[in-house]
């Protein structure tokens, strides 16, 4: 039972991180029907920013949690700037081009950012400080759940609740949904569609950056390539849940996290990806739009 719980929680942790990244994919897809392949790189840049800021703060004598928070804020701001700029220079000029063009542009952006960090930093794995302190009260159950896992699960949950609130109830959130559903009409009621799209990229990038710093301090090392792997997984999660759907992204991410965790625990860690992607293939065969995806039939 302990073993099962342990796998369940580590799957939940993984799933939470995938969810934070998958939300960016799904929100961007929902609004401009683009698979932003460079989204994983934003997550990687978030982790690198956090590493640099955390190193400086450590030298200055700050401690654990305060470093985590400050580095998190820095990572969010820096990654948002990247996301905003990326949309402006790589996607906006292609807004009216055939759909394949921005997709190629996204892949180019991804390769560019990976190699830029490779050259500016290093190709080696860099150690990432464990910014999440060990909590005393978790001692008795530390063989089941680490404090890093607890922090990741809780903070992801809080972030997702805030996001849901923002999208559902604020005027800007409603404008985002309106823009996703009908861009022309959004313009006609006075919504500045370009601004809404920029905001979507900023929100998505912030979530990815938070995911980046949380997982980096859990796993303890980063390199320029982590964004690619995490990006593919999160993209899978978004498709699994139904791309364009926000609850779908979270659900898909959790299912993916658990699948990987249980496959590793009960079969072998070699089979982690086999099970994850087999699940994707199965779901796409039986539910092509994803678990919560809207079918394309629409009343005219």
């Amino acid at each position: 039972m302990d073993y099962f719980l342990q796998l369940f929680l580590s799957g939940l942790t993984k799933g939470s991180i995938y969810a934070l990244i998958a939300l960016g994919y799904t929100m961007v897809y929902g609004i401009i029907q683009l698979i932003n392949f460079a989204h994983g790189e934003i997550y990687m840049i978030g982790a690198f920013t956090a590493l640099i800021v955390a190193s400086v703060l450590t030298i200055l004598g700050f401690s654990g949690l305060s470093i985590l928070i400050l580095a998190g804020i820095a990572a969010v701001i820096y990654s948002s700037a990247y996301g905003y700029t990326m949309e402006k220079i790589a996607y906006r000029p292609l807004r009216n081009a055939p759909r394949l063009s921005p997709l190629i542009s996204a892949i180019g952006m991804s390769i560019f950012l990976q190699n830029y960090v490779l050259l500016a930093q290093t190709s080696d794995f860099l150690p990432f400080p464990a910014l999440i302190p060990e909590f005393e009260f978790l001692k008795p159950v530390s063989h089941i759940m680490s404090s890093a896992e607890l922090v990741i699960i809780l903070s992801s949950a809080v972030i997702m609740v805030l996001l849901t609130f923002f999208i559902k109830f604020t005027r800007m959130g409603k404008a985002m949904r309106a823009t996703a559903q009908d861009k022309k009409m959004a313009r006609l009621v006075g919504i500045d569609v370009d601004k809404v799209i920029s905001l979507t990229f900023i929100v998505g990038s912030s979530l990815a950056a938070l995911g980046g710093i949380l997982i980096a301090s859990h796993i303890g090392q980063i390199n320029f390539y982590i964004g690619f792997i995490a990006g593919i997984k999160a993209f899978t999660a978004a498709v699994l849940g139904g791309i364009g759907s926000i609850p779908g992204a979270v659900l898909g991410a959790l299912i993916l996290g658990w699948t990987e965790s249980f496959a590793t625990g009960y079969v072998s860690s070699d089979y982690e990806d086999v099970f994850a992607f087999a699940l994707l293939v199965l779901i796409l065969i039986f539910r092509p739009a994803g678990i919560l995806g809207k079918s394309s039939a629409q009343k005219v």
């Binding site: 949904r177 309106a178 559903q181 009908d182 022309k184 009409m185 006609l188 629409q298 009343k299």
Partner: peptide, 11 residues
């Protein structure tokens, strides 16, 4: 009010 009404369908 555009032709075809353009209601936001999921709002």
């Amino acid at each position: 009010v555009p032709e075809g009404r353009h209601i936001f369908p999921y709002l």
